[in-house]
Simulated assay, not measured.
Amino acid sequence: MNPLTEKQIRASFVNASRREAAQATLPDLEALDWDRLDYLGWRDRKAPLSAYAVVPVDGEPVGVLLRSTDAKSGGRRRRALCAWCEDVVVTEDVSLYVARRAGASGRRGNTVGTLICTDFRCSANVRRTPTRTELGDDDSMRDTIVELRIDGLRDRSSRFVTEVLRDA
Rank of each mutant, 00 (worst) to 15 (best):
N2T: 14
N2P: 09
P3C: 11
T5L: 13
E6V: 05
E6I: 05
K7M: 05
K7C: 02
Q8A: 15
Q8L: 09
I9P: 03
I9D: 04
R10P: 03
S12D: 10
A16K: 00
A16S: 05
R18E: 15
R19S: 05
R19C: 00
A21K: 04
A22H: 05
Q23K: 07
T25L: 12
L26K: 10
L26S: 10
P27H: 11
D28G: 10
L29P: 14
E30G: 10
A31V: 10
L32T: 09
D33V: 11
D35C: 06
R36T: 15
L37S: 09
Y39H: 13
Y39M: 15
L40Q: 11
G41P: 03
W42S: 11
W42N: 08
R43N: 15
R45D: 12
K46F: 03
A47M: 02
A47N: 05
P48V: 09
L49W: 02
A51F: 01
A53M: 12
V54W: 02
V54M: 06
V57R: 01
D58H: 12
E60R: 15
G63I: 02
G63A: 06
V64T: 00
V64K: 00
L66G: 00
R67T: 13
R67I: 04
S68V: 06
D70P: 00
K72I: 05
R76A: 11
C82T: 08
D87C: 14
V88G: 11
V89A: 13
T91L: 06
T91I: 14
E92I: 04
D93N: 14
S95M: 04
L96V: 12
Y97R: 01
R100E: 04
R100A: 05
R100W: 01
R100P: 00
R101H: 07
G103R: 08
S105L: 13
G106A: 08
R108E: 15
R108S: 15
G109W: 10
T111Q: 11
V112N: 03
V112F: 05
V112D: 02
G113N: 06
G113W: 02
G113Y: 03
T114E: 04
T114S: 09
L115S: 01
C117P: 03
C117A: 12
T118G: 00
D119Q: 07
D119Y: 02
D119S: 10
R121K: 09
C122R: 11
N125S: 06
V126M: 10
V126K: 06
R128K: 15
T131K: 14
T131P: 07
R132T: 10
T133Q: 11
L135I: 08
G136I: 10
D137W: 03
D138C: 03
S140V: 11
S140W: 08
M141K: 13
R142L: 12
R142N: 07
R142D: 06
D143N: 14
V146S: 07
E147P: 00
E147H: 08
L148R: 15
L148I: 07
R149H: 08
D151H: 11
G152Y: 00
G152D: 07
G152P: 00
R156M: 04
R156F: 02
R156Q: 07
R159C: 01
F160L: 02
V164S: 00
V164F: 00
L165E: 01
R166T: 09
